[in-house]
Amino acid sequence: MKEKLEQIKAEALERIEEAGALEKLNDIRVAYLGKKGELTSVLKSLKDVAPEDRPKVGQMVNDVRALLEERLENAKAVLARAAREEQMAREEIDVTLPSKKAEIGHKHPNMVALEEVERIFIGMGYEVVEGPEIEYDYYNFEALNIPANHPAKDEQDTFYITDKILLRTQTSPVQVRTMEQKKPPIRMIAPGRVFRSDEVDATHSPSFHQIEGMVIDKNITFSDLKGTLAQFAVELFGENTKVKFRPHHFPFTEPSAEVDVTCFKCGGVGCRFCKGSGWIEILGCGMIHPKVLRMSGIDPEEYSGFAFGMGLERIALLKYEIDDMRLLYENDIRFLKQF
């Protein structure tokens, strides 16, 4: 019996060794360990063994069984690994082949710039509001301290619909509408389309965008205006950006200023981009004129405020180094794709 077991063992181990395929291993398992397998039949014939020898022989059979099972498992693992490796080798791809992109669309550069500006001011507690593009003369001019026949009305080359209704030339009327609707404290920006009768060329467009900003509260100062815009410039144009406030005149602010930032191309030393000055003009601003506050129902004795306005296209053109404004309204995909 023992010999027979040894023989089965040796034979089985040899077959396992030579199997070379998963299916063959399975066949071997069936042949030796299956219900009708050789080892199973040895176990079945245990009844023929003398009772005192049975435990010993049983033990031997179980040992052989355990050994075969272990070897079968090992061989299976080796073969499975080899098969996986073969699969991996077979499935190698040329990773430099072109990608399959889900083509995502692109934002208009104006929008990219606007979102940057909005993000900065929303972070500072400003609400983004809007006003009508077709506007009453009153809101566009009169309520902004630009009375009838004021030369500033000519300067702005207004498109008129009727004597009283026009295409707004600036986003400043949103200041007035906001003051009429809200009580201080007010912090808002108002982006939007504006219109002036300029012929289309590389630097002019009859339709463009402005972003208006306004803060009204008790004790708002010119120094607050300076601080706010200095912070804005740093956020928009980078850490080392400096601002310069130059006195200027707008009918609806007093004192008024134009703001230059250090040229972001040359850092302020002067280059062709900033025409050698080291500075680039980006916006106009000032303390809201007491007449404007009063006309819009806010008591200038109690409140003060500042306002600022900038051209969105100007910022987009400067920031992304676009050299022709007409590109913004052609919508050539080769242009849009760059943003």
């Binding site: 001011f121 972070g123 507690g125 609400e127 509260d217 004790n219 708002i220 607050d224 601080g227």
Partner: peptide, 11 residues
């Protein structure tokens, strides 16, 4: 250069 103080507003 200072920043406006006073009551906060929601952006």
């Amino acid at each position: 250069t200072t920043l406006p103080g006073g009551e906060g507003t929601a952006g």
